[in-house]
Design a protein around this nucleic acid. Sequence first.
RNA 1: GCGCCUGUAGCUCAGCUGGAUAGAGCAACGGACUUCUAAUCCGUAGGCCGCAGGUUCGAAUCCUGCCAGGCGUACCA
Length: 588
Amino acid sequence: MSVQKLKETILNKIDSAAVNALGQIPEPLELGFPPNTELGHFAVGCFPLAKQFRKSPAEIAKIISEKITPDDVIHKVKASGPYLNISLHPGVLFGEFCSEMISKNTKYGESSVGKGIPGMVEYLSPNTNKPLHLGHMRNGALGLSISRILEAIGHRVVKANLINDRGVHICKSMLAWKRWGAGSTPESQGLKGDHFVGSWYVRFAQEALEQQTLEDDVQTMLQQWEAGDPETLKLWETMNTWVYDGFAETYKNFGLEFDVFFYESDTFKMGKDVIQKGLEAHVFSKDDHGNSVFRLPVAEFGQEKGGEAKKVTLLRPDGTSLYITQDIATSILKIEAHKLYFSIYVVGSEQEYHFKCLFQILDALGYEWAKDCHHLSYGMVYLPEGKMKSREGKIVDADVLIAEMKKLAADEIRQRDPDGRLSDDEINHRAEKIGIGAIKFYLLRVRPTQTINFDPAESISFDGFTGPYCQYAYARISGILAKAQNGATDLQRCDLSVLGNPEELSLLQRLIQFPEEIHDAAQGFNPSKIAVHIFNTAKTFNQFYNKHHVLRAENEALVTARLALIKATAIVLKKGLNLLGIEVLENM
RNA sequence: GCGCCUGUAGCUCAGCUGGAUAGAGCAACGGACUUCUAAUCCGUAGGCCGCAGGUUCGAAUCCUGCCAGGCGUACCA
């Protein structure tokens, strides 16, 4: 029997008891857990039935419980206030769940509610004038995680990175390098390409404080770029190539994956056609200044002080496009080029209004998929000193943070290996996964809407509610399973009726809950659900581990049964961490 | 002004599609390694759930108003 079916069996049993006792099919009920394992394995609150039957929930619980006769699945049902607490036979309870988890392995928790519907998750979307920082890391961790979560519920996801490779920002780096760079390259300076280019952006900002004319010079350069001046284009390409090499290294180190790249230099002119068609269809109009504009529906967006509908400017009178112009085009391109049905934009909360307008415009243009566009908005990351400002160097650089975390993890590993048995390669390998795990978990453990106040001390911690804590629980289980290898029993079919102490029950409950957490995380675009649940699972395992032995349990049957339970736990931990973009380790 | 987000223990946060005594982690204090990895576990202490009303059998959770902070308010990206 599958887990789903077992749950249905229990609810059906309650339903028929309710019909029996009250003469009507009851409102749908939900299967939950009692606050502690001594009360039972599952619980059902009878609140929804109170109105239907005009009795208090407690009374209903009592009546129903009396009509349920124990069978080979249900051991007993006891009314406790408004709740029905249900206990199953331990063999059924553990047997059904553990064998399903073990047989499904890394597929456990997945579902098909997405019906294979394909869509795109666009995330990271960096500018090419400077290296990635902490804000990008939050975006990257979120984007990768939500992609995997959507895949887990049965969607096909195309992960996209829209690179903002043109504009005044990159021209600043270009201009500074041209003036003062003297032909230097990342290699000649021993710098990562993105850091090299970023250093010229900083240089520009410094020089511009002294020389006002620099801002004009940058505008000239931008015009040359737009006009297709060969020399400018060549410099632009060279600098972007440096940056992409640097980015690629960071993506690899931080574990970010992309299926497609979009470049704004390719898409920024495409918007004009769309605007033209919109004008012809009278979706857009011209305002008094000759701007092409879209009037936002008053019902949803309110109106200007003068009583006019609010508007979005789409094209200036001289035909130059704006941020939203190219975004409209890119949105269409994404969906049509890849034959997709939905589109997720992982972008900071400061752009909420922008996306609200964008989706409204796409809807007005008649694109049916506009309703399936979603802005996954997340809060800012603040440093102790306040908001990050790259021009002032007030940032946490991604590469620096990764290196720091890796070093801290390596120090920690060496402390645990006083005899120096581990090779440098092994230490390096572990440190990388632990360091990245710590950063990603730190960024994903809170709701996306929360502003994060980056606390350096807390972010580098490996104790408590952290990624390494969860990885450690997995490594502990791996250790036990490795030692148990000889005399390997079929864990999928062993007798689990010997399990049933409170720690084993609590652990099993966490494992049972996992698929629902994935579903909730997907529904709410909220990976923190997974982080919290995986932490709780690891914690519950550690509690079990500290109180009971696996390999030295009282008898052979118990050893085997506990091996099955911890194997299932390992599967959930690995899958959960994987959904957060975090890798597990067999040894720590 | 208007819109969105946030306000829960000293700190950082879960819980927010209403339901069993409001939960973690960190920090503090006290315990547990001759025993499957102590990056662990157990215990103690710590809470007008921003404030005030309302809806409900029942509100941290829903509604209204207020207070505080953040972001945005488009012809920047």
